[in-house]
Design a binder for these strands. Structure first.
Lengths: 107, 107
DNA sequence: CAGCATCCAGAACGATACTG
DNA sequence: CAGTATCGTTCTGGATGCTG
């Protein structure tokens, strides 16, 4: 892969994650929450399909953006950001600022 | 829509654009080029489907991120970023930096 | 509570060929 | 050069119901 004519690929890792339908929104919740649970996300998103949520969470865990923590009885578990995930937050916030600036009442 | 429980929607505008498969890469070329042509993009991307490229360009134009400029004879035309589009570049660069930091030799 | 399984509608994208 | 037309495939994600 020649970097001269094809300097892409660099963006790939970020777009792979942020390009999925729910992921940016999901990640957004970590800005204020730090630790989030499955059912919380279902709730916050207004009823995301558990299948979708599960797959997003799995992908995020596999790419090392979040970490799953089994906590307590009754299948209670929590998700929190890793350092890698934390570094994503400023980008999310910039995206949000941009959206807000150019599409304030975005339908 | 209640902003308390559903503070989303803000990210939407950005993710709608950056979520498409080629768009971030396409935009990336504007960092160095300023003015880009259809065939250049086809070339730079390594042969993106013209149908796809066309639809991306149309979408970008409709959201006011790029501007199409008919220039010269022979269907020659060019695309350049608007102010709105320019404001997207830092985000792209951050995404690139992030990708580079956490997935250097990203396959 | 935290998922997984199955089924399915529709969007996204590539290949290829053709036009103003 | 800058697209459009057509076709087909693949991938995504929603609905719904079940399980550890």
């Amino acid at each position: 892969m020649d970097t001269a004519t094809k300097p892409i690929g660099c963006l790939q890792a970020a777009t792979d994650i942020l390009g999925d339908k729910w992921t940016p929104h999901l990640l957004r919740y970590f800005i204020n929450e730090e630790i989030v649970r499955f059912c919380q996300l279902q709730d916050l998103t207004g009823g995301i399909n558990p299948r979708t949520l599960s797959s997003r969470l799995t992908a995020l865990e596999e790419t090392g953006i979040i970490k799953k923590i089994i906590s307590g009885p009754g299948s209670r578990c929590e998700y929190k950001l890793t350092a890698k995930g934390h570094d994503l937050l400023p980008i999310l916030q910039d995206m949000e600022a941009w959206s807000d600036k150019y599409a304030p009442s975005n339908a």
